[in-house]
Amino acid sequence: MADVAARAGVSGQTVSRVVNDSPRVDPGTRARVEEAMSQLGYRPHRAARALRTGRTQTIGLLVSTLATVGNSRMLQAVADAAAARGYALTVVTLGAHPDVAAAFERLSDQGVDGVVVLNEVTAAATETPAPRGLGLVVVDAPPDAESRRRFGIVQSDHAGGARAATTHLLSLGHGTVHHVAGPAGSFAASERERGWREALAAAGAEQPPLVRGDWTAASAYAVTAPLVADPGVTAVFAANDQTALGVIRAFADAGRDVPDSVSVVGFDDVADAADYRPPLTTVRQDFDRLGELAVAALVAGIEDGEPGFEIVPTELRVRASTAPPS
């Protein structure tokens, strides 16, 4: 840093401010210091910085599995947002039998400054005290007062999206809407179920029994059998797009085409949703925005000690998988 300061004709403190992206450096000076850093091949030393600041510029991501599209999309979004802020990322997956306390200790031992927790892990994570000094932001958790005091929360408007999907199907003339739900214990699944029920109640429509899958197309295909066998089922709201894919296949195998015989709406708007056959009406989640807000809230908590709360809007995308009942 002394060499950079001498080359740029500034103080060592100014170089430090540039390295740490402080706003207290005018653009001309910043450009001169960055040019000197480039000429001299200067790179900040993470280990030395960690010893000086007590922070490693590394965050953790705690997730049950990366096999689901939503979680893998969130991994990409969090990784991109962390990199944009100069943070490295360490990922821990828990599998079917999570030991959240051990995962927190593992991440703490690796020196992460904070952790982003995703979806299915949130219930266990919110009940498990994090090691002292470890920042925490949870993506999709109940925003009760105690939780908001302890950690930051970022979530999609799952209930609002589900209401929009269900209301869309009812507006087409369907008498009611059936629901193939996500797994029990998932906050996102429970919120989508809540939105579905609220829309039916608001319309005075019958609330039929739901069937429950595990986010996968194979699971949805298996549990949809009772719906396929009932000719009165003309509209289905699926908990996510993979679930919708399984639902469409189950009805198609029974000779009931979508949307002629039954309309189907998904949730997420995955990259291939518009290429399903037929193109899928679905609720779009803004995964990039979720990742940006999660990392921003975590960094703010690390640096300022103030956990935040953000809800990201969802948007209904109407395509060819929905139509009035025949």
Rank of each mutant, 00 (worst) to 15 (best):
G291A: 06
G152C: 06
E146K: 13
I248H: 11
N119Y: 08
Q110M: 15
R277E: 14
A274R: 12
A2P: 01
G213R: 13
A271F: 15
A296W: 12
G182D: 08
Q57L: 11
L51K: 02
P313F: 08
R17P: 03
S263W: 01
V137R: 06
D288W: 07
V258E: 02
Y42L: 06
V180P: 11
S108T: 15
R24T: 14
T93K: 07
T65Y: 06
R289H: 13
D269Q: 04
L94C: 14
T281G: 01
A31P: 09
H179I: 12
D99F: 12
L134A: 09
R194K: 13
G86I: 08
G175K: 09
L227A: 07
R319Q: 11
I59L: 14
L118M: 08
P231K: 11
T176A: 09
A102G: 03
T314I: 14
V283R: 04
V180Y: 03
R289S: 12
E303R: 11
T281W: 01
A202L: 04
R289V: 12
D269H: 11
A294K: 10
A189T: 00
A101E: 15
L210C: 14
S11I: 12
A297L: 09
S186W: 10
A50S: 01
V92N: 14
D260I: 05
G54A: 07
G133C: 05
R277K: 12
D99P: 08
R106E: 14
A294E: 02
G175Y: 10
T281I: 03
G41D: 02
D157T: 05
E127F: 12
A81E: 00
G301Q: 15
A217H: 09
